[in-house]
Design a protein around this nucleic acid. Structure first.
Lengths: 201, 201
DNA sequence: CCAATTAGTGCAACTGATGTACTTTTGAAG
DNA sequence: CTTCAAAAGTACATCAGTTGCACTAATTGG
């Protein structure tokens, strides 16, 4: 839909300044959030420190939560690629499991800033919910990719079901002592069911 | 935790009045919501019409959404009963499917007030989300019941996975032309996977 | 009857978010 | 270069949900 952020695009002074303002706001917000916690930093303060008005802030970010997820990038393309470009013989749920384990559960081993970021999101209900809601917006696209790859009709509800469950899987892990195992088990359930369902037509 | 609402409990004048106030607030709110829509009725107005202060209102209901779900009753016991008292030979996912189809997708055929209520919830994002969040709070209890019934260790992540997915299933239906079919398919996926998973130990 | 709770009140304030009207900047057309 | 309209930003007021505080009044248990 919107192709902002393409580094190759020669944008004029105007768009550059706009992007700079946006970045300044997001950076300020994230810094303050990491310092003092999401709930203890108000919109007015962020705008103040970033030296813009609250009106301007909300012109760049629709809601407070969005300040944290500025660099969404395209998670969706990665997700779809995981399905479409999976190794020969690997089932779709298996590919999604790999992707989930690699991409969503990789918090621990990155550098400190990433860890802090994940901690922030993880420990703030509002941010967790927002992130999950964003994640679920890919359901339809994923369902369509699954339908194409599996040869099932696009309208087949099982495709939507698999897509939805796969996207919910990381959430199942919450509260388990071994999150990776929990996610793996959730995908086991889906994989076995999916195999049988596909082979029967 | 709290055992309010037990009709057999002889509560004193105080608790009776409290319950009456609560009921009056909830009734007023629901009436206004049905008349004019959830988003077009403010907290202050509800309190005003119910003749209480907003402070009092919030002492009975933690957030605006809660005004609509006053009569939660115990969905949880029904859910657990569906699993524990299922017919001989019926799998756990099958029992959950029956329960989902009967209890969650039954909006259309009740009397008009129920229909209107479901429409209200269904057409208001804030209420949908709140309802789903409430629904998911039963995950742990359901997972435990599943573990007991299936003989798997309580810590087995697959139990949590099945519980979570089963509770999410109704959401898969959203946006499909035939919601009941979509839900059924979602449970098919779970049932087949579950059978295999249990039989392997 | 006294003392401790506790429902309820009134009011002010805070926080996220929106609407309106006004100024500046900028890109581009003439 | 001038002019003009769109875009970006600002100031200010306001709304809605929610909370804190100080206080009253009813109730209940000892």
């Amino acid at each position: 839909m919107d192709d902002t952020g393409n580094s190759a695009a020669p944008m004029g002074r105007r768009e550059r300044k706009k992007a700079a303002t946006r970045q300044a706001i997001a950076d300020t917000a994230l810094r303050l959030f990491l310092e003092r916690g999401y709930d203890d930093v108000g919109i007015r303060e962020i705008a103040d420190v970033a030296d813009v008005s609250t009106t301007t802030l909300f012109k760049h970010f629709p809601v407070k939560e969005a300040l944290v997820f500025d660099e969404d990038a395209d998670q969706e393309s990665g997700l779809l690629a995981a399905v479409r470009e999976r190794p020969e013989g690997q089932s779709i749920p298996a590919a999604l499991r790999e992707h989930a384990l690699r991409y969503r559960m990789a918090a621990a081993d990155g550098d400190a800033r990433f860890t802090a970021f994940f901690d922030l999101v993880d420990s703030t209900p509002a941010l967790r919910d927002y992130a999950q809601a964003m994640w679920l917006r890919h359901t339809d696209a994923l369902a369509q990719a699954i339908a194409e790859e599996s040869g099932l009709p696009e309208s087949e509800p099982a495709c939507t079901a698999l897509a939805h469950f796969a996207l919910e899987a990381p959430r199942v892990a919450r509260g388990h002592d071994d999150p990776r195992l929990a996610v793996a088990r959730a995908f086991d359930l889906l994989e076995i069911g999916w195999r049988a369902l596909v082979s029967r037509g």
